[in-house]
Write a protein that binds this DNA or RNA. Structure first.
Lengths: 145, 145
DNA sequence: ATCATTGTCAACCGTCCGGTTGAATATCCT
DNA sequence: AGGATATTCAACCGGACGGTTGACAATGAT
């Protein structure tokens, strides 16, 4: 099917793009897996801040916070400008979309499945138990919850 | 302010609840930080499956997949029933909500901030530069972007 | 009873991760 | 030039993580 060479190229491109997204998802999810980094993001949502300001509330070293910010930056959740010696940190809201899209996709698939299952069960109940009597159900052992 | 003892209790309860959510977020985010586990979730979105079925496509050991499923189970993303020797795995879509709620909260805060900034810039541009001439802006050094 | 099937448990290994401390860099101030 | 401020770089440490292999447990089939 199709002319070969071209479709291979396309497949490579598609795979590459998926890998890129995969890598970004790896980084974003694992960036937010740390409570300190989630707190940094939360605080950056209301205003930009310098490393020193961000580090103040925590009782870990400033260097540790700097590392956390590096992780957030590599994940794309945050960017840094330059202002004298300071390097103000800025939250990039767009990256959230990558995650929410991934999450929503599979959540919706799963929910659609549950709705189908519910519909099926309703249908069975109606056609085999229309009055509500307790007849032996036509289920094998393995189907019990 | 307030009667003391009671508010301390309440604060403890609130803190505890936040800690619990925090712990769950840690687990859910780090569960999804691994590409194999994300793939497992993706496949479970369409149908339940056994460990063996789930492990087949990957070239890692069955035990490794079993471990991955344990992580997903501990995060609450997945539950397991029992069916003879098999232990079918089932995706629990509700847990996604915890993540999406967290994400959406800060994304929206950040976006609201950008909108306010845009509005402010528009306002400044209008009142100080109505015809388009380039006057010196009333900004101190630190306010430069 | 025995055997096959399905999955988990346990111990081990190399790598990554979050933290530390100490030195280096960059910029401002005087 | 010299010092103060803000941040990063580099080396190190202990613990968690993803993977392996080998033994064990539970259930179904003969």
């Amino acid at each position: 099917m199709m002319e070969g060479g071209r479709s291979v190229e396309i497949n490579q491109l598609v795979e590459e793009r998926l890998d890129v997204d995969d890598e970004r998802l790896n980084r974003v999810f694992s960036a937010l897996a740390d409570p300190t980094r989630r707190d940094l993001v939360a605080r950056l949502a209301t205003r930009d801040a310098t490393v020193g300001e961000l580090a103040a509330p925590y009782d870990i070293s400033l260097q540790a916070v700097s590392k956390h910010l590096k992780v957030l930056e590599d994940s794309g959740l945050v960017t840094r400008s330059r202002e004298a010696q300071r390097r103000p940190v800025h939250l990039e809201a767009e990256v959230f979309d990558l995650m929410t899209k991934w999450i929503e996709r599979y959540r919706q698939e799963a929910e659609a499945r549950y709705r189908r299952l519910d519909a099926l069960l309703d249908e069975l109940a109606e056609q085999e138990d229309p009055a509500g009597q307790t007849t032996a159900p036509p289920l094998r052992d393995e189907d019990a919850s």
